[in-house]
Simulated assay, not measured.
Amino acid sequence: MIDVLLKKGKEKAVLQRHPWVFSGAIEKVKGNPANGEIVRLVNAQGAFMAYGFYNNQSRVAVRLLEWDESVAVNDDWFRNKVRIAVAGRAHILASGETDTCRLIFSEADYLPGLIADKYADHLALQVLTSGIQNALPVIIDELQQLLSPLSIYDKSDATSRAHEGLETTNTLLAGTPPPELVMVKENGITYGINIAEGQKSGFYCDQRDNRRLLASYSKGKKVLDCFSYTGGFTLNSLREGAASVTSVDSSALAIETLNENINLNNFNNTEHIAIKSDVNSQLRKFREEGDKFDVIVLDPPKYAPSRSALDRASRAYKDLNRIGMQLLNSGGLLATFSCSGAMDMETFKQVLAWAALDAGKQVQFIYQFHQPEDHPVRSSFPEGEYLKGLLCRVW
C-alpha cells in the first residue's frame, strides 16, 4: 500500500479523526496511486495515522476511513459499514407511517461520498468520490442482500463529481427500472417520487420532522410554501387543516407532481394554488398586489456551496427573507431554512436580524429546525450539519 506523508504540524485534524486531508497538507506521495485507491497516511516521521481514499484531482486529497492500522479496509469493511448504517435507520421505518429515509449519509456513516436513499422498495444512490466508485460493486451487493430492493438507481449527476475526475451518470445499477412515479409514505402522507428525473436522488427526506412540526401551526391559516418542490410542506399543511395553501416552484415537473400528490391523498377540499414561477419574482408580485399570509415557508436551494460564496449568499438570504417578512400578517410565522453547510446557525440568525431591520419588522426566534436523525452529524465532522432553519414570529 502506498504511503502518503503529511507535512510536519498537520497531524492535529487527523488525530481528532476529521475525515478530510487537503492537498496542501501533504508533503509527499511515495508512488503513483490511482484515484480512489486506498493509501496509508503517515506523519512526517513515517508513523501510521490512518487509511483513506486518495485522489490527486480533488482539494480533499485523502478521505480518511480507518484509524486502526490492524483493521484491513477490504470488502468486509465496506459491508460492515453498510450494515451498521442500514440497521441504524430500521426504527424509522418500523411504524409503517414512513417508508422513505436516508440509509447512508456519506462521512457521517464512515463512507465518504456515498448517499443512499430508500424510496419504498427502491434505492437511489449518489456516488461523489472515486473511492466509493471503486467500492460500488460490493456496496450494491450488500444492499441487495440486506433489503432485496426492486431497483438500485444511480443518481450521480452532481457536478461535484468532476472534482474527483468522475463523469456524471444517471442509470440503473441493479434490478428492474423503477416506475415513473414510485409511491412512498412519509408521516402517513403518500408522495409520488420521480427517481430518474427528480432533483437530487428524487425527494428531500431531510425535512421529514420539520414538515410535521410546522404543520401543527397551520390549522386555519393562510400558508405560502416557497420552493415547494413536490409539496412536502404543502401536503402536511393541507392535512392539518390549513385554510388555504399557495405553493411556488420554478420547476414545471415539481408543480405537476405536487398536484398529483394532492390528488393521491384526497386533499382537494382545501383551497390550493400552485404557481410555476421564480420565487423571488413571485414574492415581489405578491407584495405589489398586497397579498398577505399567516405562515410562510422559505426553503431555497443551496446559496453558499463554499465559504468563498458566503458573502454573496448572505445577501441573497437577507433579500429573500426581507420580502417574506413583509408578506406576513402581524404575528405571522416565517419558517426559513438554509441547506448551505458554509452558513452556520449564528451567521444565519444575523442575516435574519439584518433582514428584519430592512423590512421594518420585529422578529422572535421561537424554534430551531435541524436535519433528522437519518442525517446524523459525526462529532469529528461538524461540516455534516448542513440543514438549519428557524421558526420566526414576525410583527
Rank of each mutant, 00 (worst) to 15 (best):
V4T: 07
K12Q: 13
H18W: 06
G24W: 13
E27C: 01
V29W: 04
N32P: 00
N35S: 13
I38T: 13
Q45R: 15
A47M: 09
A47K: 14
S58V: 04
V62L: 10
V62R: 11
D68A: 12
A72V: 13
V73E: 05
V82E: 00
A85M: 07
G88A: 14
R89W: 04
R89Y: 07
I104L: 09
E107Q: 06
A108G: 15
I115S: 08
D117N: 03
Y119M: 07
A124R: 07
A124G: 13
L125R: 03
Q126W: 01
Q126S: 13
L128C: 10
L128E: 12
A135L: 01
S148W: 02
L150N: 14
T159G: 01
T159W: 01
H163C: 09
P179C: 03
K200I: 02
S201E: 10
R208W: 09
D209N: 12
L214Q: 06
Y217D: 02
G220Y: 09
F227L: 07
S228T: 12
Y229F: 15
N236T: 05
E240N: 15
A242R: 09
A242L: 11
V245D: 12
S247Q: 05
S250C: 11
A252M: 11
T257I: 15
T257M: 11
N259P: 00
N261V: 06
I262N: 04
N266P: 01
N269M: 08
D299I: 08
Y303C: 11
S306L: 11
R307W: 05
S314Y: 01
N321I: 07
G324D: 11
N329T: 14
F348T: 08
W354A: 05
V363H: 04
S379A: 14
F381W: 15
